[in-house]
């Protein structure tokens, strides 16, 4: 057998839940046997840095310049960069700030005298700045998906998840659709391959795995409207874990439509569009900034 994979597990700004989820993995000991874990500051004492890694798992969202520098350093250190958890893949809760006025946010935390020297930034998922090879979604990162990643990678295969919405697994588990009961579930627009614990526990999916790339937002919004679901509720859900990515996909869908269709367009589609498009542009550090 060839040499073991050199693996590092790091975090930038985040709650560490995803890194802990690696420690909670039932198969942890087997995984540790199979890899050469060179660095995992959350989980072990001796950590090698500044060397070549085959895989770096990175948790967290870019909220400041230091995160960005760390991110760029990790990218240079590794052959493959894997984003773990909603912060890294989609921006998660910190990225809600993209949809707010930065000055107002700052004022709610800092004194007026400190505001002068403040330059707060829009928090962004890591693929806004560097190439990401693989994504393990969820808030926290889905343990089963992490295990799938490890197994396929150890086997020498390229990790791939077919794009299906949450509804697929939900139907396999014979949950019975919450939408049928008038409950606002985000299953049809959320990336699948989750253990659907939310619908199974009678709680609607709130989209923690980010958008299903083939979602039909217009149809989804008008269906919810027909069912009398409050738009604000949906906007809040969408914003909570993956607002940036949802908004970009929705804007792309709008752009793909002919003029004619745009006119009778559902107003729900504009939920996120009060945010200027250039603000949501993928940024390098220079165009990345608030207002």
């Amino acid at each position: 057998m060839s040499e073991k994979l050199k693996v590092g597990i790091f975090g930038i700004t985040g709650c560490m839940g995803c890194q802990l989820n690696i420690l909670y993995q039932k198969e942890l000991l087997q995984i540790l046997d199979a890899i050469d874990l060179r660095a995992f500051p959350v989980g072990k004492e001796v950590n090698l840095e500044n060397e070549e890694f085959d895989i770096i798992f990175l948790e967290g969202v870019v909220v400041n310049r230091r995160d960005l520098e760390d991110l760029q350093r990790y990218r240079k250190m590794t052959k493959k960069l894997v984003a773990i958890g909603a912060c890294a893949t989609d921006g998660c809760v910190p990225a809600i700030k993209n949809f707010m006025n930065n000055k107002n946010v700052e004022r709610s935390v800092y004194k007026e005298s400190e505001l002068e020297s403040m330059h707060s930034l829009d928090p962004r998922p890591i693929d806004d700045f560097v190439k990401v090879d693989h994504y393990i979604y969820g808030c926290p990162m889905d343990k089963m998906e992490f295990l799938q990643f490890m197994k396929q990678t150890l086997l020498g295969k390229e990790f791939k998840v077919a794009a299906k919405p949450i509804c697929y697994e939900c139907n396999l588990r014979e949950r019975g659709c919450l939408l049928e009961q008038g409950i606002e579930c985000m299953g049809p627009v959320t990336f699948g391959n989750c253990s659907v614990m939310c619908p199974l526990k009678n709680y609607p999916c709130v989209g923690c795995r980010g958008p299903y790339p083939d979602a039909n937002f217009e149809a989804y919004f008008s269906m919810l409207e027909d069912k009398g679901v409050d738009k604000e509720t949906i906007a809040r859900h969408m914003n909570r874990f993956a607002g940036v990515k949802f908004a970009r996909l929705i804007q792309k869908e709008k752009e793909g439509k002919g003029e004619e269709e745009k006119e009778d367009e559902n107003s729900c589609m504009d939920l996120f569009c009060h945010v200027a498009k250039d603000r949501l542009k993928k940024g390098d550090a220079s165009c990345w900034g608030g207002n």
Partner: peptide
């Protein structure tokens, strides 16, 4: 146009 590609 109405289809969510949900596969239900």
């Amino acid at each position: 146009k109405e289809c969510l590609s949900c596969g239900d």
